[in-house]
Amino acid sequence: MSGKSRRDFLKSTALIGAGVTGLTTTAKAGPQNILSEDRMGVLVDTTVCVGCRNCEWACKDAHNLPAGNLEDYEDRKVLDTKRRPGTDALTVVNEYSHGKNSSLPIDVKVQCMHCDHPACVSACIVGAFTKHENGTVTWDTDMCIGCRYCMAACPFQVPAFEYDKALNPMIMKCDFCFDRTKEGKLPACVEICPVEALTYGKRSDLIKIARDRIKRNPDKYVDHILGETEVGGTSWMYLASKDFAELEFPKLGKNPAPGVSESIQHGIFAYFVPPISLYALLGGIMWITKRRKELDEEVK
């Protein structure tokens, strides 16, 4: 009886091992991060932005959100309170005091930064997020289960969730007008901006342009392109006349946000070797302790 069960044990262990290895080979890898040399970006020059909020209107209009009349966006009282991108507005403009000149406030458009190494893409439980070749980070609502891990993971606190909906609540964020850029159009906000505070172009070109602007106007700009290196680089980058911390940008390091968690994750699951080893180890201990007990009993 005991001999038989031991043989069963070994056989089954081998079977399970084979099964798990089979699983690894068929396992679909997580979404790939494609970083094209030609990926696009937007340079937001906050020294140019006048805070007209036309971008807010254009964004809603392009994403079929209730937008209202463009003329209603002229009311600058809205800027008295700080707002965040949400489910009703994927981008918002906030206003900060200039410090030196009270009649020239600093206006900052906020939206998804479209990270080069997006935390949301790494975090999403079902892999609904995709980083596209042109830099855009989009998501597939049909896959989303609404766990909101992307929101917890995002270093810029951008994704929003429709908390008020009982059925079919959605995660929402700026999609860099993926549908428009596919057709060769500009993102809606870039297109409408009256002063071209938003420059749409190749990310590599934009960095050169930004550097050049700082070099030529060292008094006007702080020597920092936000998004050039933050969390491994972002598609949207900012120039400003004062420290970005004063414009409520989070202080972030150069390491990609998902770096540590992914290496932990890949360490634990490197080709399923650690789990299988653990399984084998435990199986071994179990077998040895069982055998020792049987020997003890035989002695008795």
């Binding site: 006048v50 009256p194 002063v195 071209e196 505070a197 420059t199 172009g201 934009l206 342009i209 050049d212």
Partner: peptide
Amino acid sequence: VSIPDLKGAYHR
């Protein structure tokens, strides 16, 4: 895109 387009330039 190193210099603004006409619309941007006018408005600025």
